[in-house]
Simulated scan of single mutants.
Amino acid sequence: MSTAAPMPESATKYARVMLKISGEALMGDRAYGLNPQTVARIAQEVKSVHDLGVEICMVIGGGNIFRGLAGSAQGMERTTADYMGMLATVMNALAMQSALEQIGIYTRVISAIPMDQVCEPYIRRRAVRHLEKKRVVIFAAGTGNPYFTTDTAATLRANEMGCAAVFKGTKVDGVYDRDPKKFPDAKRYDRVSYDEALEKHLGVMDATAIALARDNHLPIIVFSLDEPGGFRGILAGQGTYTTVDAKG
Rank of each mutant, 00 (worst) to 15 (best):
A31I: 12
A31L: 13
A31K: 08
A31F: 14
Y32T: 06
G33T: 03
L34D: 05
L34I: 06
N35H: 13
N35M: 08
Q37T: 13
V39Y: 03
A40E: 11
R41P: 07
I42E: 02
I42R: 02
A43R: 01
Q44T: 09
Q44Y: 05
E45L: 07
V46A: 04
V46K: 00
V46N: 02
K47L: 09
S48H: 03
S48F: 01
V49H: 04
D51T: 09
D51E: 09
D51A: 10
L52T: 07
G53W: 07
V54T: 04
I56M: 02
I60G: 01
I60M: 05
G61S: 06
G62L: 07
G62E: 01
G63S: 03
I65W: 11
F66C: 05
R67L: 09
R67V: 12
A70T: 14
G71C: 04
S72K: 12
S72P: 10
Q74P: 07
Q74S: 15
G75F: 11
G75D: 09
M76F: 15
M76I: 13
T79S: 15
A81W: 11
D82W: 10
D82T: 07
Y83E: 13
Y83T: 14
L87K: 05
L87E: 12
V90N: 12
M91A: 14
N92S: 03
A93H: 07
L94W: 07
L94S: 02
A95S: 07
A95G: 03
A95I: 06
M96N: 04
Q97R: 06
Q97E: 08
E101M: 03
Q102K: 11
Q102Y: 12
G104A: 01
I105S: 01
T107P: 02
T107A: 02
R108Y: 10
I110F: 12
I110L: 10
S111Q: 06
A112M: 09
P114D: 12
M115I: 15
M115L: 13
D116K: 13
